[in-house]
Design a protein around this nucleic acid. Structure first.
Length: 198
DNA sequence: TTTGTGATGCTCT
DNA sequence: GAGCATCACAAAG
């Protein structure tokens, strides 16, 4: 399959949206990763906003700045690859400088370079290829080498894609405690998409 | 029972 | 200060 589509990185202005809005706008966009073996990409179908200061799920709460989270304090449009155990989670840094907000990409729908993705992660069910944070990062070969990289130039960038017909929002999952933070509709996904983790 | 996920923590240079 | 690593719980089959 050819990929002659005009995959143009989104302009810097795109990342100037408020974090929550950016998370929604990101749905349907195309996450592109170029490697020596070729180019693989997918539609973003699930995102999650992380408001570092007021978000209980965001690690220790409050203002904890470490080497890992350092990039979150940078300006918008950067890539934040969080290496945790055997998995890699990819985030899009948003908000302005010194504001630790970002959008976590939880799931994508395979678009181009599917064969390449399958080669990296053999799965029996096609839906299992990228239906999760750890899966998609492995399928797209996203690693710490992408940490702090700009999302506006190859080999890793986000291009405009199709607009989702219907977007759902709701509370995030996996958060047991914390009163109000649990009900925050910080999670966005494309309604009815099979590649959404839930 | 197996696979996936979890904003980290520890050890070495 | 930077790089590298493991364990355990939960959800799905």
């Amino acid at each position: 399959m050819k990929q002659n589509l005009n995959l143009t990185p989104l302009p810097d202005a795109f990342y100037q949206y408020p974090t929550l809005q950016l998370a929604e706008e990101l749905l349907g966009c195309i996450l592109v990763k170029q490697t020596e073996e070729g180019t693989s990409s997918g539609f973003i179908v699930e995102t999650e906003a992380y408001l570092g200061n007021a978000d209980r799920a965001a690690h220790g709460f409050g203002n904890r700045r470490t080497k890992r989270t350092e990039i979150l304090y940078a300006e918008a449009g950067m890539t934040y690859t969080h290496l945790i155990h055997n998995h890699c989670l990819i985030n899009v840094v948003s908000a302005e400088k010194e504001v630790p907000e970002s959008v976590l990409i939880r799931a994508v729908e395979p678009y181009t370079g599917v064969d390449l993705m399958l080669a990296r992660r053999p799965v029996k069910k096609f839906q299992n290829l990228t239906s999760g944070p750890g899966k998609l990062s492995q399928a797209l070969n996203i690693n710490m080498g992408d940490y702090g990289r700009s999302l506006q130039e190859p080999p890793l960038f986000i291009a405009a894609g199709k607009k989702p017909e219907k977007i759902n929002t709701g509370p995030r999952i996996g958060i047991d405690n914390s009163g109000e933070a649990r009900d925050y509709p910080y999670r966005f996904w494309v309604a009815g998409n099979k590649f959404v983790s839930k």
